[in-house]
Amino acid sequence: MQPLLQIKALTKRFGALDVLKGVDLDVHQGQVVSVIGSSGSGKTTLLRCVNLLEEFDGGDILIDGEAIGYRTEGQRRRRLKDRDLSRQRAMTGMVFQSFNLFPHLTALGNVALGLIKVKGMAKAEARALAADWLGRVGLAGHAAHYPSQLSGGQQQRVAIARALAMNPKLVLLDEITSALDPELVQEVLQTVKLIAGEGATLLIVTHEMRFARDVSHSVVFMEKGRIAEAGPPSEIFNNPRSPRLIEFLRSSRD
């Protein structure tokens, strides 16, 4: 079966700095893949390339077999037009480290905006679906609250509902608990476990090793812009092979 997400020989430079030096990664429908690694290893950049928030210099990203972000004209690679990029972005959902809720909209408005403007749903239908999603992330009582009236954990759960309500093929989670107070981390991780259990396809960048071990089908360790080691969580965490991964796991256990 064709993987839902195929990343092939992906390279990305920021000026003189090679951030991604040829990354290959497949994610299948219904799979949960976690990307771990120290900061600066390129994890977040990888996610941002998949969501087309970042341009990339070489390689291909395919979702459901469709190459995203660029088209090739003869020898030249050209960035697609805004409208095509927007359509392709809607195939993936993204949850950010810093929540990034729309501050001028209520929790319900945050979830409903994309349904109305991107999916073209009628307002009543969109609001009903948005309310439904807020209920699923445990925030039914907060629909009318603005982001500034919600705790960090609640804001992040709204952001999860906002991403999932769009029914994306693939959800990208970018260090979604890193900006949270420690006591709020678990409610967000529980929400992610819930959607993973419902069969969502997730690509997760995380520093929560226990969570990555619990929720993932596969774990990828990135080091200096490359995938240094990949495998099922039992292998990666119990039987790491590369010295860098062993060192990384030891330091992140502290």
Partner: peptide, 12 residues
Amino acid sequence: GVIEAGRAIGLT
């Protein structure tokens, strides 16, 4: 980040 969140849900 809020602008990126708008782009991420597929707004042009």
